[in-house]
Design a protein around this nucleic acid. Structure first.
Length: 586
RNA sequence: GCGCCUGUAGCUCAGUGGAUAGAGCACUGGCCUCCGGAGCCAGGUGCCGCAGGUUCAAAUCCUGCCAGGCGCGCCA
């Protein structure tokens, strides 16, 4: 556990107060829940608040407000780090901490550095995260980009929470789609040699097929014309899918997404793993023959009906591959499988859950994260895409146009199960409309500050040596509070599989930083500035942007530099989890 | 017909049991002699789709309905 150390401290203080109150007869319950401590919505309500009084009111058989007062009295006497404590209807405990409580957060960040916020809730459990897994029948498009960004961020988030995550891409290099690809490429190849090939009815019409045929022609010349059509087609298919997989790998690498393994569907056939998995099911009496086909009894496991795994013509269905694939994942020792799928595959989820259960695993072993469609806009107008005609915006085009950072950040600004509007013009804008730059700018601004400090010979001291008691301004306290919430954010985000929470956190943190930075100075003015500035140091005041005086002592400079160093660390940590760069300059 | 997802400010969306529901954008007006103005400040908006229910407490949980999206193959 590494929920924010301040919250932890307060929670245990409340827990102690409950016990003490009970020993003194002020409370009667024998069992107390772990007190929940959270940031209240309004600053007037204090730094932290707890609802514990309302939770135990029932077992105490007293009104929540009365219970809250008892706890408050106990805390008042036993707790030294509280500046103020109050109760509010219907029974909240509102706590205001002494400012120096937050200093421990700065120490914690300095001590743990780029691991600040990490936890061990995953306990080293091995997770297989499968995502993208687009058929190697064409280039990746926008929707795949969303899945890719999500998967990469999720992997990093889960690793930060103590899971051992492997990322895997399942390559569908078998089956009907591959046959169509082979036929399409072969037809284009024949055209190159002046022969009229019959282009498959539902083949792939995109221009990239022609490009593939040309490339293959360059490499192999007219060799394929001598083969019988069946062998030639197979050759075309294998060659094309290899090329496409390589192109996909390049696209993803440029997008900053890499996989530990690329798992071939065809290898399941070649190695006999499909038959092995089906035999395993047969031993469990979960397959049967009917109408000349072989069926899996998925209805035993809350699927709506049984499913065919081997067709009348003897071919395996796609489900058969998936059964073998997931069986293999489990056999490789992963205790938790996470699949990121397009939302249009949601109907397939119960079937896959049935497979997991059929092999004797709990249904919590497989978690499917569904990703909704991306609606692409350009300056507010919808960009039409038609996969049929081979016209779609590829991931490559988007990355070329707006950059990998902006693309990833935009993909991760929404919960995965909501539709996403992606406006190319907005993502490109280098202005306040663009959230990516707002966060990155905060980081670059701090980097610049530290460069300037170094130029002027001002050293950033270790936290332990800094006069932190100089930090008393609301903007400073707010920053420290926000920093203290980072560990809890990562834990909760990992549990919920929701990396988008990090983007919102970073936008808030960047906002607090910008406000602070506007209102307060950190470095003393240069000597020549002081001479020309007879009226003394200027600074900005509380809730307005009017100029006011603020004495900038040496101590204050030191303390603020140390604070901002930790802010920079956390922004960098957050951006890294999203897979977005934290630039030193922009 | 059945199933899954979504419905929150003009727009795009946060918020999944807590207090008077938030942010960005858009709109209006202001702020740079100074560490990066890609920044800051001020201005107002809501039958939280509708109706019941559970609870001390519901945007959040349950039920029904309405609207939009997506599925429901011996396709992948």
């Amino acid at each position: 556990m590494s929920a924010g150390i301040v919250q932890k401290q307060v929670a245990s203080a409340i827990a102690n107060a409950l016990l003490e109150a009970q020993q003194q007869g002020a409370l009667h319950s024998t069992n107390f829940p772990q007190p929940v401590v959270e940031f209240p919505k309004k600053e007037e309500w204090g730094d932290l608040s707890s609802s514990v009084a309302m939770v135990i009111a029932k077992q105490e058989k007293r009104p929540p407000l009365e219970v809250a007062r008892v706890i408050a009295d106990q805390l008042q006497t036993s707790c030294t780090f509280l500046e103020n404590i109050s109760v509010a209807p219907p029974g909240f405990l509102n706590l205001t901490l002494r400012p120096d409580c937050w200093f421990s957060v700065l120490e914690e960040i300095e001590r743990t550095g780029d691991r600040y916020g990490h936890s061990q809730i995953g306990q080293g459990q091995r997770v297989l995260l499968e995502f993208v897994s687009a058929n190697p029948t064409g280039p990746l498009h926008m929707g795949h980009g969303r899945g890719a960004a999500l998967g990469e961020a999720l992997a990093r988030l889960l690793r930060s929470a103590g899971y051992e995550v492997d990322k895997e891409y399942y390559v569908n290099d078998a089956g009907r789609q591959m046959k169509l690809l082979a036929d399409s490429v072969y037809a284009r190849y024949l055209e190159l040699h002046g022969r009229v090939g019959s282009f498959p009815e539902d083949g792939y019409h995109g221009d990239y097929i022609k490009v593939l045929a040309q490339a293959m022609d360059q490499e192999k010349g007219a060799d394929l014309l001598d083969l019988n059509p069946q062998d030639a087609r197979r050759e075309c298919g294998q060659w094309a899918s290899q090329e496409l997989v390589r192109a996909i790998q390049e696209d993803l690498a440029q997008f900053g997404v890499e996989f530990e393994t690329w798992y071939s569907e065809a290898s399941l056939f070649a190695s006999g793993k499909i038959q092995t998995a089906l035999n395993e099911l047969e031993q469990r009496d979960l397959v049967f023959a009917q109408d000349g086909a072989t069926w899996f009894r998925s209805s035993r496991f809350q699927d709506e009906k049984d499913r065919v795994v081997c067709k009348q013509d003897g071919d395996y269905t796609y489900l058969a591959s998936d059964i073998a694939y997931h069986f293999d994942k489990l056999r490789r020792g992963y205790g938790w499988l996470i699949n990121i799928w397009g939302a249009d595959h949601h109907g397939y989820v119960p079937r896959m859950q049935a497979v997991i259960k059929a092999f004797g695993y709990g249904d919590d072993c497989l978690r499917v994260v569904l990703v909704q469609m991306v609606r692409l806009l350009r300056g507010g107008n919808k960009v039409e895409m038609s996969k049929r005609a081979g016209e779609f915006v590829t991931l490559q085009e988007v990355v070329d146009e707006v950059g990998a950072d902006a693309a990833k950040f935009f993909f991760l600004m929404r919960r995965s199960d909501t539709h996403l509007e992606f406006d190319l013009e907005l993502a490109k804008k280098q202005s306040n409309e663009n959230p990516v730059y707002y966060v990155q700018y905060a980081h670059a601004r701090l980097a610049s500050l530290f460069r300037t400090a170094q130029e002027r010979g001002v050293r950033v001291s270790p936290v332990g040596e800094a006069p932190l008691s100089a930090l008393v301004q609301p903007e400073e306290i707010r920053l420290m509070k926000q920093l203290s919430g980072f560990p809890e954010l990562l834990e909760a985000g990992a549990k919920a599989l929701e990396p988008h929470r990090i983007t919102f956190y970073l936008l808030e943190l960047a906002g607090l930083l910008h406000v602070f930075y506007y209102k307060h100075r950190v470095l003393p003015p240069r000597v020549e500035d002081v001479k020309s500035e007879e009226s003394g140091d200027l600074d900005h005041d509380g809730e307005t942007n009017e100029l006011v005086r603020e004495d900038l002592s040496r101590e204050l400079t030191m303390a603020r530099l140390v604070l901002l160093k930790q802010v920079q660390t956390v922004i960098k940590n957050g951006l890294r989890l999203l897979g977005v760069s934290a630039p030193e300059r922009m």
